[in-house]
């Protein structure tokens, strides 16, 4: 229940940021070709990219959507498979939590050094704080999954693997959605 609500909130925020990046790029080009330049589009895009990626990061974990090579499914079955699965989640959560922690350290550094963007002079620290928070949330959600011990729910993962090469709507491997 609460998970579904988190999913919805993050989904909407991520969608809005992505739409904003697309519209900003589009408007910038239109205005420039009409002779006016919007100041600071590059740095705005950069800040929004940081926010977008980390807003959507917990959503990737929700559906076991991280790209995984599944060649050993036949070998790791039963109890051994479950243990392997839990260890995998533990490692993933650890990585996310360490990155989140260090992003917070970075944010603190940016704030105390008063790092600004080049054109508009925006503070970089708030975006870094945002990235840190979302990365930590992704880590906590991964831990929650470990504790609840949800069985393997490959979101349409097929027998030997799933994922994308920088792909698009088939992000869920062969989900066929």
């Amino acid at each position: 229940m609460i998970l579904r609500r988190i999913d919805l909130v993050l989904g909407i925020v991520a969608s809005l940021i992505l739409a904003a990046i697309a519209l900003l790029t589009f408007t910038d080009v239109v205005f420039r070709n009409a002779g006016t330049v919007i100041r600071g589009t590059v740095e705005l895009t950069e800040l929004m990219m940081g926010a977008l990626i980390f807003t959507a990061l917990p959503l990737v974990g929700f559906r076991d959507g991280h790209v995984t090579v599944e060649l050993t499914q036949g070998v790791l079955t039963g109890m051994r498979g479950r243990i392997a699965r839990q260890l995998t989640r533990l490692l993933s959560a650890a990585v996310l939590l360490v990155i989140g922690w260090q992003l917070a350290v970075k944010a603190d550094r940016l704030a105390s050094a008063n790092d600004l963007t080049a054109t508009l002079g925006l503070e970089k620290a708030p975006v870094a704080w945002f990235m840190a928070a979302l990365c930590l949330i992704a880590g906590v959600l991964m831990l929650a999954e470990l504790v609840s011990g949800r069985p393997d729910v490959p979101g349409g993962t097929v027998e030997a693997g799933a994922g994308t090469d920088a792909g698009a709507d088939s992000g869920r491997g062969g989900a066929g959605t």
Binding site: N114, D115, L116, A118, G121
Partner: peptide
């Protein structure tokens, strides 16, 4: 080495 202007404000 670095350009000071990369991190304005600092």
């Amino acid at each position: 080495y670095v350009v000071h202007g990369f991190t304005p404000g600092r």
